[in-house]
Nucleic acid binder design. Sequence first.
RNA 1: GUACAGGUAGCCGAGUGGUCUAAGGCAUCUGGUUGCAACCCAGAAUUUUCGCAGGUUCAAAUCCUGUCCUGUAUUCCA
Length: 466
Amino acid sequence: MLHIQNTLSGKKELFTPIHPGKVNMYVCGMTVYDFCHIGHARVLVVFDVITRYLRKIYGSENVTYVRNITDIDDKIIARAIENGEDINSLTNRFIEAMHEDADALGVKRPDIEPRATEHMDEILKMIQTLIDKGMAYQGDNGDVYYQVSKFETYGQLAKKNLDDLQSGSRVEVEQSKRDPMDFVLWKMAKPDEPSWDSPWGEGRPGWHIECSAMSVSCLGDHFDIHGGGLDLKFPHHENEIAQSEGCTGHKFVNYWIHNGFVRVDDEKMSKSLGNFFIIRDVLKSYAPEVIRYFILNSHYMSPLNYSDENLDKAKASLTTLYQSLLNIDVSDMNDSLIEDSDYAQRFFKAMDDDFNTPMAISVLFDMSHELNRLKEKDDEQAKALGFQLKKLAELLGLLENDAQQFLQGSTSEGGLSDDEINDLIEQRAAAKQEKNWSECDRIRDVLDAEDILLEDTPEGTRWRRK
RNA sequence: GUACAGGUAGCCGAGUGGUCUAAGGCAUCUGGUUGCAACCCAGAAUUUUCGCAGGUUCAAAUCCUGUCCUGUAUUCCA
C-alpha cells in the first residue's frame, strides 16, 4: 500500500486515487530560458521514478503524467532581448536542450507536456471566472490581480497565516494592489513585449495562472498528485490552489509532493558563487546513470549535496552493482518479475513508504552480493537472479545499460582505443604464459596510467575504466 | 521576526518508542582467492553513539520542552 508524504497535511498518508485504479499527476516543469541545471535534474529524475512506480502499481495506461513548460514569462522576455533573439526561437532551443538532457538521464517523457502559450484560452477563461466571482480585480495600472483576502483558506499549503506574511514582507508594494499579498493574473504588455488579446487589454498571463490553467485543462479540476521543487510551495503552489479552487469552489489537488534542494559543496548553488552546474557539463565527466544514482541514493525530500566526491561515490557504488551483472546475459529472458520474492517484497515495501529509494537501492545490493555467490555455483540460478535484479532496478531507471559497456565507458576522449587495450592485454597474456611477471606488471602499469584497470579471471583478463 | 525543511558513525545515507548490538553504499583493515594486484567471497574496526541540554517512559536516534546551527520561503528560482 503506497503511502505519500503530503505537504498539504504535513503527514504521510495512504494514497487513494480519486478514480479507483487511475492516477493523474501534474509536475511544474521548466521555465525555458536557459540550460537545465542539476537542481532541474533532481525534479526530472525524482518524478520520473515516482511515475515509473505508479505505472508499476496501476498499469502504465492508467497513469497520466503531465509536466508543463513555461514558455512565456519575464525572464524569457529578458533573455530574448539580451540575446537579440526571437522568443519562440529561444524557447524552442531550450526545450530541445531540456529533452536531450532528460533523455540522457533516462527520464521518460511525460504523457502530456503542455506549453503555457498554447493554453491562452483556458487562462483567459479562468481569470474571467475569478473576476466574475469577485475574487480578482483590475488595478489602476491595468494589471489584473487575485484578491487573496477573498480566499479564506489561503496559506493552507505553506501553513502560513496572512498576518505573518504581511509583517515579514520585504517587497515594495505595487501601488495598484489593494493588498500587498495580491498577486498578478494578467499583466499589461509593455511596448515590444509579446502579448495576447484579452478583455482587460493586450497583455500576458502571470506565472501562477499558467499552471492552474494547464493542469485543469489536462487533468480536470480535481486530480491526485501535484509535484514540484520545494521552493515552489510558496507562493506558486499556494496561488495555484487559490486560483483553481477559487474558480471551481472545490478541492483542487489531493496530494502535494515537494522535492528538496540541491546544494553544491554545502553552499547554495548560484551563478554569483560560480558553482552553478548544468546537466550537460556534468555529463562530460560522469555517466548519466551516475547522476541518477546520486540523486536516488537520498530520499527525494532531503537536501542533496552535489560534489565531485559524492558523484565519485555514486560511481563506485554503481560499479559494484554492474560488476555482479558482468557475464549475466538476460537478453533471452522474457519472464516477468517474480513479485512475491523476498527481494521484490522488500523493494516494494521501501517504495511504498513514500518512495524510499535509498532503502530500495540497498535491496539491489543484497541481490548483487547473492548474485556474486551464485555465479560460482549455478549459472541458471545466477541468470534468474540477475534478471530479477535488472527488473527491479528498472523501476528506478538504474542498471538499464549493458554491464560491460558501463564499466568500460566511452572511448571518445583521446586515450587508448578498445583495440589498443585489447592488444596490450594479449601481450600481457603472452608474458603471463612465460611467467614473465615484470613484463606483465609493466603492461598493467601502462594501462593503469591510462585509467584502465585489469581484472584477471579464470576466463581471461577483463578491463574497465576508472 | 514568522513559517517550512534539515542536523544520524571517517564520509554518503536509511531508520519516527523495544527485533537499533543504527540498513545499505563509499573509504579503511584482516583472512581466503591471485604470481602480485584488481574483482569477488568471509569477517573486522571505526560508535556505548544519533546537533546540544533537560524531561516523559520499564524502554528513545525515534515522544515532549528548551536551545544552537544550516537551508529555503516571505522577492524570480526545481
